[in-house]
Amino acid sequence: MTATGVKARVPVGDAPPEAADGTAEGPPPERGRRRLSRTDRRDLALGLKYISPWIVGILVFVVYPVGYSIYLSFTRYSGMGAPTWVGLGNYVTAFADPLVAKSTGNTLFYAMIAVPLGLVVALVLALAMNQNVREVAWYRTIFYAPSLIPAFAMSFIFIVFLNPQFGVFNQVLNIFGDGANVNLLGDPTGVKIAIIMMAQLGAGNAALIFLAGLRNVPKTVYEAARVDGAGPMRQFRSITLPLLSPVLLFNLITGVSGALQVFTEAYIVTNGTGDPDAGALFYMMYLYKNAFGFAELGYASALAVLLFLVGLALALLIFWCSRRFVNYDVEAS
């Protein structure tokens, strides 16, 4: 896995050793064509037996539900009785449904702010966690702790935090003007901003991954840069960021994937309505309502398939763009 700086491992006896410059000598190995020996077959069977619980788990809990969901997306199905085939009907309805457009807009608004902001917050936390001070273990614990608060509890904390009369947020606003007249949760845009703010308290997980990336950057590179006269900002821009880019890519993709599925916080702070004015009606909430509130599992499945396709497209787009900014040249120190 060169992405994390560890050289790719070559199966023993399968291919010639790598040359010093990383290129292989001799004819390329005939992958997958070599006949397995009796021992290989026995090892393979044994290996499969060992991982069979996971294989069964994936088949039962992932492959089958995904496949069935795709099938249901072409049907009208309430959860009871047999599904009725409607072809592309659910997809046609989805593209004409004003609430699909509204909830997609809300979700994209959230993703476009929460994801970049989340990366910045996580990176800043990781840099703070990476300081060479004696109390660093304490700092790491303190910075990571908010990520352990369940979204459910966090939502209730935020409802109090944003109370127009008594909330800390509004008390701060009072310094500049009239905080008592501002109810962030009562405004269609404000409620999204509030949920974006909430998401930042969970940045500790991404920060841990950044921290692992930071620890992987060789100290010698920084030393060389310092000798050449690079200041902290220049070191960050020219060394830290480029060498952290594979981790950044990972956090970006998982962040986008998570943002497309935002649900819990919005469900709690709006009492499941998505109001005011459907401002917090995110795509997953609308999907949930259709599936379990309106008993339209076929339509909800179509929405899920569309979400999957959008998520896939975004991931591919990010991968394509990543060729320009991701640097895989770092090696483990």
């Binding site: 409802i159 109090v160 009562g186 709006t270 009492n271 005011p276």
Partner: peptide, 13 residues
Amino acid sequence: AKADAFFATYQPP
């Protein structure tokens, strides 16, 4: 907006 701030204060969600 004013009524909402009032209700959010005295009977929050």
